[in-house]
Write a protein that binds this DNA or RNA. Structure first.
Lengths: 218, 218
DNA sequence: CGCAGCGGGAATGTCTACGATCGTGTCGAC
DNA sequence: GTCGACACGATCGTAGACATTCCCGCTGCG
């Protein structure tokens, strides 16, 4: 995809996609003129996008020194995941209380797809389904504020999440955790859903903490 | 007219202060030229501030239609407080685990000041100490991500929080809750601190929900 | 050989002007 | 009297030009 410059989507969205997609690597400098040319817009639009993504935590701006793609350390990734645990516990609880029958059925199907993906060794597909599951749970909760915050946190740690998905045996470990979450939500047990979601993300924190001790570089 | 233009603080900070301080009322239109003149800066700086506060959730921008001070409904205020409950529970737990002796002493002093404020009927002062306590707890936790998110959520619902503080008898109800939080933190009991903080904010949610049912206007 | 001062170049910060878009008031027809 | 079309005014969106700041390499001196 070569990129026919599409004037529809805003510069901020395109820049966000490029950062999350890894096109612009962490620590990479973001020069306004270059981005303006790249997206076929003026510097003003790029500046606005930079300000927006700065407050979102995706880029870092220093006065008179320019912007860079924010580098998130393992320590920060741990904090982000801990915050997610608190918020996603809340939305899991709400999803258990408020999801419609159709939504519960969809969640069950999602889990089955994830099981199939693990058996067939489709790691990339599993990772996609993983993100979908978390997103759908947030939507089922009808909790807009939490949903928005979670989406932001997920974006911030996207790089680490991606690395995590590629770890051997990780899917086998997280699948039963996801099943526990969905089971609780489908059963309408808010307490269990909250606990299961926290347990899941706590296990992610454990892996990250292990990386931190090993001094794994980003 | 008034206002010696102070070039030091950024336009975004001054605009944020004016919104939080109630100088610019919810729903009020934010015209770029007017703000530029008010703060003695160019329209560019105002635009950047508007974009920033938009992603922070304090202002609402519509394409080609201008910006307004975001009106947050009671429903949103409830969601915000629920999210705060999840995140502040986390920081309270961390504060209990990580606070230094000096910090624990300071928290104790804060509670004593709050008790004195309630006895002397200093509602405004109590409200200030309230904010300070929550802020200090977040700082003690050394959890930058959660601290940042909480600060943002608190700003978003600032208007409702302010109204809450003026409710008769509210201080008498929340003071023991605050004391329970501080006691748990000082004692180093993370579980209790988490539970106490959630109980406190759940009680705030109850009041807001009551307002919602009464159809209280902002 | 090391370091302080200095100048070139690049990128950001700000301002101003122009074009696009929307809300509103007016006028005319039915 | 009411409704719709038109035109005007106001405001946002974008682009470009100018001023400012900072980094880095160079030069000259100790």
């Amino acid at each position: 995809m070569g990129a026919a410059p599409d004037g529809r989507t805003s510069a901020a969205d395109r820049l966000r996609d490029d950062i999350l997609g890894g096109v612009l690597p962490p620590g990479g400098r973001l020069i306004e003129v270059q981005l303006a040319e790249r997206y076929g817009v003026g510097r003003s639009a790029v500046r606005a996008a930079l300000v927006e993504l700065d407050t979102e935590g995706l880029v870092q701006r220093e006065a008179n020194r320019g912007a860079t793609v924010r580098r998130v350390s393992v320590i920060e990734a741990i904090e982000i995941t801990e915050a997610r645990a608190a918020l996603e516990g809340l939305v899991a609880r709400r999803a258990a209380e408020r999801a419609t029958d159709a939504e519960r059925a969809e969640l069950r199907e999602l889990i089955e797809s994830m099981e199939a993906a693990v058996e067939s060794g489709g790691l990339a597909h599993y990772s996609t389904l993983n993100r979908t599951l978390h997103r759908r749970l947030a939507e089922c909760s009808r909790h807009e504020i939490a949903e928005e915050l979670i989406a932001n946190l997920r974006n911030r740690a996207a790089h680490h999440q991606f690395r995590l998905a590629t770890v051997a045996g990780r899917a086998g470990e997280s699948l039963p955790q996801h099943r526990a979450i969905v089971d609780a939500v489908v059963a309408g047990d808010g307490d269990a859903a909250d606990a299961a979601m926290r347990a899941h993300l706590d296990s992610v924190v454990s892996v990250l903490r292990h990386w931190g001790e090993l001094g794994v570089s980003v």
